[in-house]
Simulated assay, not measured.
Amino acid sequence: MTPSTPNTPPKALRRAAAAAQAHAKTAKSTKQPQHSRPEIPFEPHDRILLIGEGDFSFATSLLTHHGCADLTATCFDSAEELGRKYPQAAGHIAALEAAGMSMLYGVDATKLDKRKEIKRERWDRVVFNFPHVGGKTRDVNRQVRYNQELLVAFFRAALPLLVPDGTIIVTLFEGEPYTLWNIRDLARHVGLRVGRSFRFSADAYPGYKHARTLGNIEGDGGWKGEERPARTYVFEKAEEGGQTREPDGKKRRRDEDSDEDSDG
């Protein structure tokens, strides 16, 4: 920038400075973020219950890369069935056990109160990544209904397990048939509301690999579910009458569909 001289009028200097400042502000606001940081809905101190963990790679990533050290990871399969479906799970289980984390087998997401290890605790985060009933039928409408029933039963089972400000976190693939499940409405019917939602980034969890409901399938062409677009929903307890509490404890009315959506 060329230094000013005594002959430059002060008013002109002020105009030039204001113009430069406005230009810089505009350039900053129009600049597109190149590397937005993915949102991680966990804190290291959270007590986290993971449902339907598949091969336990997600739990291992939370422990190893995000410092979450109060984990209980569960899967629907028995230990024997898990080993058959996901041979890679052995290494993840060994890492979790070495760190003192808990693993539970044969856990039904719709009957969490049947396991005393789960219901005797209160959880900051109850997490169900990519819930799915599996290939029960080829009829799309029936498949949608079965998955809706799974989610509603899971919400009802998980809600009493939360601490007062706890959340239920569910991640689904985007697009049909998953959008047909209407997860927001399902949650609303059981006393939950979406606090926020955002794109799920598998890259934020190094070592995580999406485990198919059917397990590893030979000759599937190297299918990688973690590369499909997905969205995470963070559900909060809804107040009576559709109200939610402000940080100062006051209640305010909130539109049920006005949750914060982030594409970052």
Rank of each mutant, 00 (worst) to 15 (best):
D108G: 06
R142W: 00
T167P: 05
K136V: 09
D113C: 09
L112G: 03
A158T: 04
K119G: 02
P131V: 03
R122E: 12
F198H: 12
E176Q: 14
G191K: 02
R193G: 14
Y146K: 04
R156K: 15
L151N: 02
V163F: 03
F198W: 08
L161W: 04
K111C: 09
G134Y: 09
A202Q: 10
F130Y: 14
H189I: 11
L172Q: 10
E174Q: 15
G195N: 08
R145T: 10
R156L: 10
V126I: 15
F155C: 07
T171Q: 00
N129K: 07
K136A: 10
V170R: 04
N147E: 08
G191N: 09
S201P: 07
I118Y: 05
W181A: 00
G191T: 08
T171F: 05
W123P: 06
A187N: 09
Y146A: 08
G207K: 05
G195H: 13
L159T: 14
K111R: 15
L162S: 01
T167D: 13
T179V: 09
F200M: 07
R199T: 10
N182F: 06
R199M: 09
H189T: 15
I118A: 05
T171W: 00
G166M: 02
G106P: 08
W123V: 09
G191V: 02
I169C: 13
G134A: 10
R145L: 12
E117L: 14
G106S: 12
A153W: 01
F128E: 04
F173M: 05
P160N: 04
G191E: 06
W123M: 07
F173G: 08
F173K: 07
A109Y: 10
L112E: 02
P177I: 01
T110Y: 01
T167W: 09
L150M: 08
S197V: 07
M103L: 15
A204Q: 03
R184S: 14
F200Q: 03
F200W: 11
L150S: 04
D185I: 12
R156E: 15
V163R: 14
V126T: 08
D124R: 10
W181P: 00
K119C: 15
A202W: 06
